[in-house]
Design a protein around this nucleic acid. Structure first.
Lengths: 81, 81
DNA sequence: CTTATTTATGATCTTTAGGTCATAATTCTT
DNA sequence: AAGAATTATGACCTAAAGATCATAAATAAG
């Protein structure tokens, strides 16, 4: 599963989903990523203005990466898990 | 063309590339996105810690979006322009 | 229902991104 | 090579993110 993201909230949803799939608690993700549990909570809830670096730190811990692509109104599920 | 991004520098490269393809100067992108030319310059050069929101503002102006996907060592060019 | 675990909130402090202006350095035109 | 346009840097200031600790609220277990 992959997630399209155009807003901080989108990123938050994607990260929460990935964390759940990996069976991690925020605290566990925190120690894996070096990002505070409180910060993870805020990001998952779409706080505006999170730092890119922080997002990348979390992505790395969840084995995720971002793709910069042209906007598509259509489906975004062309990349399967 | 789409870009894989794991660091702020990756995002910067992707955005610069997209801007060039769209034939925009930083100043033009700035007025389209509401982000300062100076800030765009810094982001394109990979300054660490840019805000997610700022990146999204630029993406929107360039008609781009992000995809959160599992890391793949392999090719990332499965999404064609 | 109670307890334990997980997640969300709140406050304070420090650091830093971005707005803003000025200007230096680089690149492009002619 | 000049001159113009574009991009990079530097300083200052303000707003806000993240570190950190404490704790409240919500969810899961027993």
């Amino acid at each position: 599963m992959n997630h399209l993201a155009r807003t901080p909230a989108d990123i938050g949803h994607a990260l929460r989903r990935a964390r759940k799939i990996n069976g991690l608690t925020q605290k566990e993700l925190a120690s894996k990523s070096g990002v505070w549990q409180e910060t993870i909570s805020k990001i998952e809830n779409g706080l505006p203005g999170a730092k890119l670096e922080t997002v990348f730190d979390i992505c790395a811990a969840l084995n995720l990466e971002l793709l910069v692509v042209k906007r598509s109104k259509g489906t975004t599920d062309f990349l399967e898990e």
